[in-house]
């Protein structure tokens, strides 16, 4: 055992040294550097220029936190941010619950029309978002009209419409992620629990749920991010006076790019990174 390790070490060292110096090795290194630069330089620039004192946010003229201060003073932007968070939280909770239950049913039962329903579940993932948005808009107009003819009260688009729309497109994504973790879940564990006297409810909460929780968290995280940065559907379905952050950012950018935009983008980045970190932490603890 010890012999084997020392052997691999002595072999591995000259090999890696040769790779570093050879042309192929250099090309490989350059490739990796470029790839990561491609991914992260724009984000780094965004973060850096959220602290520049240059009012157009394109040159480094000195450090300032002014833009963050202005941001928090901007009631319109803050309102949009709160709306976005509210929509994201509610639609994530709802779509995660519905999606998890759907995934459980699809994984567990064999029933007529299952294959067709399965295909229909995945379709929303590949449907172009603009089509989805137009469809949801048309549907809401139709539904509001119908409701108005029944109740007599005019109904306007509001945050609830956006939430419902976000739930609608998030469910498919949650189902996909949760089903992956269910595929790796050993059904015999449920039999073992039943064998030890656990009823269906106890088996779910003590065995199934904790073991597929990483998948559920993954699905929820995806739903949350999708809702947070959704632009097209939010633009189409939010009513007057209920603006959401991506739409508000777009409106501001159309006039001028200011470091304020960089600042709010940096904060959103921070939030999503914090969420990913949190979910990693939760999963590692297990």
């Amino acid at each position: 055992m010890i012999e084997a390790t020392s052997q691999t070490k002595t072999v591995a060292r000259p090999a890696s040294a040769r790779e570093r110096t050879s042309l192929g090795g250099l090309a490989l290194l350059a490739n990796a550097v470029l790839m990561y630069a491609f991914l992260y330089v724009p984000i780094a620039i965004l973060v850096i220029f959220s602290f520049t004192s240059d009012q157009f946010g394109v040159r480094w003229t000195g450090f300032t936190l002014d833009w963050y201060a202005r941001l928090f003073a901007n009631q319109r932007l803050m309102g949009a941010a709160l709306n976005t968070l509210y929509v994201a939280v509610i639609s994530t909770v709802a779509s995660t619950i519905i999606g998890t239950l759907t995934a459980l049913a699809m994984e567990r039962y064999r029933f007529r029309g299952r294959a067709g329903m399965d295909a229909l579940l995945y379709l929303p993932i590949v449907i172009p978002e603009i089509v989805m948005a137009v469809a949801l808009l048309a549907f809401s107009a139709f539904a509001f009209d119908l409701l108005q003819s029944i109740t007599g009260e005019p109904i306007r688009r509001n945050l609830t419409t956006v939430i419902i729309a976000h739930i609608a497109f998030s469910i498919s994504f949650v189902v996909v992620v949760v089903r992956t973790s269910l595929k790796n879940f050993d059904r015999r564990l449920e039999e073992a629990a039943a064998d030890l006297g656990a009823n269906g409810w106890q088996t779910f909460w003590r065995i199934t749920f904790p073991l597929i929780l990483p998948g559920i968290i993954g699905g929820a995280l995806l739903a949350f991010t999708l809702s947070l940065d959704d632009f097209i559907i939010s633009l189409f379905l939010s009513g007057p006076g209920t603006s959401l952050l991506p739409v508000e950012v777009y409106n501001k950018v159309r006039r001028a790019v200011t470091p304020e935009i960089n600042a709010i983008s940096t904060l959103m980045l921070l939030l999503s990174m914090a969420l990913v970190g949190l979910s990693q932490l939760v999963q590692r603890r297990r």
Binding site: D186, R188, L189, E191, A192, A193, A194, D195, L196, G197, A198, N199, I207, P210, L211, R286
Partner: peptide, 18 residues
Amino acid sequence: PHLRPVNTVFQSYALFPH
């Protein structure tokens, strides 16, 4: 199964990993 007075040792053991 949860109401039967028997217990099973599974081929794969089926121990709860968590």
